[in-house]
């Protein structure tokens, strides 16, 4: 079976430090003012005064049913066999249809290359056997990356063991990024 890369976000581990964004900027030379990944906030948990908030790290969802792939007039955006939604810069005509069609607003327009750009799961690092920069740098270990088709991978084990969700499921995009919202007991670990 071919690989299908994806992320599992252990939400309780994200501390909103934004190191993933900084690492991505540095690794992928993301232009100033643009970003390939982000951290958003979920609703408050608990009741006053015992309130807490969840941080949701995110990037391109590398959807199985990716609208950006369907709408791209030249096929510059494509879903690779390994699950990565990639952009072929040579084929991109800069029509920005993918940017309009993405329900997660995951794409930006690269001002110098004049193409629509986004997270590539650091495919150049994957080719070298390394994990994406955002995963390597994540201080709390909130971003877990791996092969969703491999039953022994960490991501598969986490998904089997814990309830998880995807963002905007009503869009029918079948994202490859899963969020585990559960929290371990005090001092414990979900794994």
């Amino acid at each position: 079976m071919s690989k299908r890369y994806g992320f599992v976000m252990l939400v309780y581990r994200c501390i909103d430090c934004k190191a993933c964004q900084v690492a991505c900027w540095a690794e992928n030379e993301v232009p100033l003012g643009k970003t390939r990944n982000w951290i958003t906030r979920d609703g408050y948990r608990g009741t006053f005064p015992h309130l807490s908030v969840d941080y949701l790290p995110g990037n391109c969802m590398h959807c199985d049913n990716a609208p950006c792939v369907s709408v791209c007039p030249t096929g510059a955006s494509s879903k690779r066999e390994d699950g990565i939604v990639a952009v072929n810069y040579k084929k991109c005509i800069g029509c920005k249809y993918c940017m309009v069609a993405c329900p997660y607003d995951a794409r930006y327009f690269h001002p110098e290359k004049e193409v629509a750009d986004k997270c590539t799961m650091c495919k150049h690092r994957l080719a070298e056997g390394k994990e994406p920069a955002c995963v390597t740098t994540c201080v709390g270990g909130a971003r877990v990356f791996g092969d969703l088709n491999d039953p022994h991978s960490r991501v598969s084990k986490l998904l089997r063991k814990h309830r998880h969700k995807v963002l905007l499921p009503e869009q029918g995009t079948k994202p490859s990024i899963y969020y585990i919202m559960e929290r371990p007991q005090e001092g414990g670990n979900l794994e």
Binding site: V71, P73, I93, Y97
Partner: peptide, 15 residues
């Protein structure tokens, strides 16, 4: 870029 659309078609694209 306008003409390139004809040479690299994606039939699921409205554009």
């Amino acid at each position: 870029r306008l003409i390139y659309v004809l040479f690299s078609p994606n039939f699921t694209s409205g554009i």
